[in-house]
């Protein structure tokens, strides 16, 4: 258990001692339906925070809002104290917040290596004139060296020069993570990284997530597997119907009646 949060109250929207991300008043509705409607959310730096909640709770919509892929109807949020309202998704990424997708977005007709190297942020050859006349090969070579251990770490080295489209579903999840790491983000948002992945690989993925925290990143991840949540989270935030209904350490949230209620619908009294 992570000590910094030891004295933090176990209640929705509670302030954290050292938040990397602070959001307040975020709202987004789709024709009448309030997909996200939260008063306040703070994410503690250097932790793994799990975002849980029943289907349709607004978790992915929240990710979309935080990462700039969707625009909220109201509200503001900050990364390291810098406001992110109206900042386009690509700039959010450049400011150090990277997200992955529920349905893996591997770039099928790029090789695994190209997928990872694409994520490098320092390549001037990505600018048109530099591509034509500039010198980008040295940096490209350096990036190749940087990508190599990442590809190895995720066990994709034997596939490095194959099209990403030929990978299995689980391998694509690994690739997406390797790609995200190449950006060297401070905060990484993982949308159901273990969905549809076999148990052995799930365990491997979870270990990778813990390793991310240990090298100093902050992780928020959406997860349905409660065992996984219990095992690796420092903090758990539970959403239902667009709102945060509980926050706290894993064991605490799991025992919270409001959470059980949200997962089981409104049949609380009938639970055996």
């Amino acid at each position: 258990m992570y000590d910094a949060l030891a004295s933090t109250a176990h209640e929705p929207g509670v302030p954290k001692p050292d938040p990397i991300m602070v959001a307040s008043g975020l709202q987004r509705s789709f024709g009448g339906l309030h997909a996200v409607d939260l008063e306040s959310l703070e994410i503690q730096r250097h932790t793994i925070t799990s975002l849980i909640g029943p289907n349709g709770a607004g978790k992915t919509t929240l990710f979309n809002l935080l990462s700039g892929f969707d625009k909220p109807d109201a509200g503001e949020w900050h990364l390291n104290g810098g406001p992110l309202v109206g900042i386009p998704a690509f700039q959010v990424a450049r400011q150090g917040m990277i997200r992955t997708f529920q349905l893996t977005r591997s770039l099928a007709r790029l090789t695994v290596r190209e997928n990872v190297m694409l994520a490098a942020t320092n390549q001037p050859g990505e600018r048109f004139w530099h591509a034509l006349f500039g010198k980008w090969r040295d940096i490209e070579e350096a990036n190749r060296e940087k990508a190599r251990p990442l590809i190895e770490r995720f066990g994709l080295d034997h596939m490095a020069d194959e099209y990403a489209g030929t990978l299995s579903g689980g391998q694509r999840k690994l690739l997406e993570m390797a790609r995200a790491l190449m950006v060297e983000p401070e905060l990484i948002l993982l949308d159901e990284p273990t969905a549809g992945v076999n148990p052995a690989l799930t365990q491997e993925l979870l270990e990778h997530i813990i390793a991310l925290r240990d090298i100093g990143m902050t992780v928020i991840f959406i997860e349905h597997d409660m065992d996984a949540v219990q095992n690796i989270s420092d903090w758990v935030v539970c959403m239902a119907q667009g709102r945060i209904i509980a926050e706290g350490p894993p064991a605490d949230v799991a025992a919270n009646p409001a959470v059980i209620d949200a997962y089981l619908g409104h049949h609380h009294g009938e639970v055996p």
Partner: peptide, 9 residues
Amino acid sequence: LLGQRERIG
């Protein structure tokens, strides 16, 4: 005029 902002994700 009558369309809705697309849902993403």
